[in-house]
Amino acid sequence: MSVLSKLEETFLCLKAGRVTLPYPAQAQPLPENFRGRPIFDAAKCVGCAGCANNCPAREILVFDVCQEVRILQYLGRRCTYCGRCADVCPEKAITMSLEFENATNKIGDLGQKLELFMSTCQRCGRCFKGAAVLDELKMKGYRSDDLQSERWIYRSQAFLESEPVVDDIKIELD
């Protein structure tokens, strides 16, 4: 009996044939709709920080150096490749690439840093695209996330103090 079952097992194994994929020698085709690392296009980005506000991992930090320069830093370390940043971007400046072979010995290798030029709005002092596209963004004004210790600081300031914004978020983590 046991010999028979062993024979049967052998037969089953032989029937399955060789299934091992030749991966390291030969690239595997990726499935459809595969999302890899997001790649930022600095030429298209307008610096609206919509991606930073919509990232569930709080992965994109925004720091305003001065009136004209805004730094957008993508850390890359806890990105879940969910694609929400690419979804919300009004300028389609983020593409979900097919890159997944991102193994590294320095975590800083995964970062992307954009230095953006911001023009000045006559009304509020900051450049904004139309409110319709970015309705969900509740953030206004200057942002100063902690780039050194990679912390996201959620802080919001309404500009027009005479007209308080409904549901204006005023939380500060850390």
Binding site: F40, A42, D109, L110, K113, E115, L116
Partner: peptide, 8 residues
């Protein structure tokens, strides 16, 4: 991978 920095 390598860190990327852009300046507009």
């Amino acid at each position: 991978t390598a860190p990327v920095e852009f300046k507009q």
